[in-house]
């Protein structure tokens, strides 16, 4: 859970005293929190009762200690959509593993530096694409910088200085780094001119690789080649309605960030159960 917390707020008892003359309403609230949240946020003395609901123990507390950060309502999604999201956003630990590595995302604004060897037409075409992404996804900020030391994203080719030693194959590729919160904080794209020998091919490859670096995404066999999440080439790739919806969801504050697939599934199972059974509000706190 770390600094990201789901907070379940239960309004269990409502005492309404309606006065016929002045229509004044008095509301009584009792607060119950899950055991895990109680252990994290409260002292044993704060426990003033409990109840068991759907097999889970909820502890009654006198006041509500809200987690740090801004509360955002949990974002409900269609289960078909979530299946695609899980396949794309979570990389397996190894092929037989039941869980995955945590999903990655950009928290800081992306500042791109291009090596001098990258053609200006390619840069213009590419930046048009990043501008579109920037405008569609609220939490993404993408811009170009002219100074190397201002950048956290470097795009270069095999004719320029080689900025990232790990990129050394005969194929164009990317490399990303992240911090302990699974936030991507540095990225590189290396274009191999022998393979991407024209501006058209270089720009296409650059966009395709850049898209993958927005979340360490796994390209899938299941989607048509026009999608940026598909594993096959298309000269007609575009930010489809599906691509946009999935990328928006990845950057939505209505889900917990930096989690593994198992945690993600558990969060959705719990949240959907609560939404089905109770008239309640689920808040996600992001720090």
């Amino acid at each position: 859970m770390n600094k990201t917390s789901i907070f379940l707020l239960f309004y269990l008892l409502f005492f309404l005293n309606v006065f016929s003359q002045n229509r004044q309403i008095s509301v009584h609230k009792d607060y119950y929190v899950p055991k895990t949240s109680f252990k994290e946020k409260y002292k044993p003395i704060d426990s003033i009762g409990y109840l068991i609901r759907d097999g889970d123990t909820l502890i009654k507390v006198p006041t509500l200690i809200q987690p740090k950060g801004t509360p955002v309502p949990y974002e409900y999604k269609d289960s078909t959509f979530l299946e695609y999201y899980k396949k794309i956003a979570f990389n397996p630990i190894h092929k037989d593993s039941s869980d995955t590595k945590p999903m990655k995302y950009w928290k800081a604004p992306i500042k791109i530096y291009f090596s001098e060897t990258i053609n200006n037409k390619v840069i213009r075409d590419f930046m048009k694409f990043t501008k579109l992404l920037d405008s569609k996804i609220d939490s993404l900020s993408i811009s170009r910088v002219k100074e190397l030391n201002e950048a956290n994203y470097i795009i270069y080719d095999d004719n320029s200085f080689q900025y990232e030693a790990k990129l050394n194959s005969d194929r164009s590729d990317y490399w990303i780094y992240w911090n302990n919160k699974n936030q991507i904080n540095k990225s590189f794209i290396r274009i191999v001119n022998q393979r991407e020998f024209s501006n058209k091919l270089a720009a296409e490859k650059m966009k395709d690789l850049f898209f993958s670096t927005l979340g360490w995404f796994r390209k899938t066999y299941e989607l048509g080649c026009d999608s940026y999440f598909s594993n096959c080439y298309s000269e007609n790739k575009y930010l489809s309605e599906f691509d946009e919806a999935l990328l928006k969801y990845h950057y939505s504050y209505g889900i917990c960030k930096g989690t593994t697939r198992t945690f993600f599934e558990e969060q959705h199972r719990t949240s959907k159960k609560i939404l089905e059974n109770h008239h309640t509000k689920i808040l996600i706190y992001q720090n």
């Binding site: 066999y221 299941e222 989607l223 048509g224 080649c225 026009d226 999608s227 598909s230 096959c232 489809s240 309605e241 599906f242």
Partner: peptide
Amino acid sequence: NKKKKFIS
């Protein structure tokens, strides 16, 4: 042809 193309 099993790949899916989701459109509006």
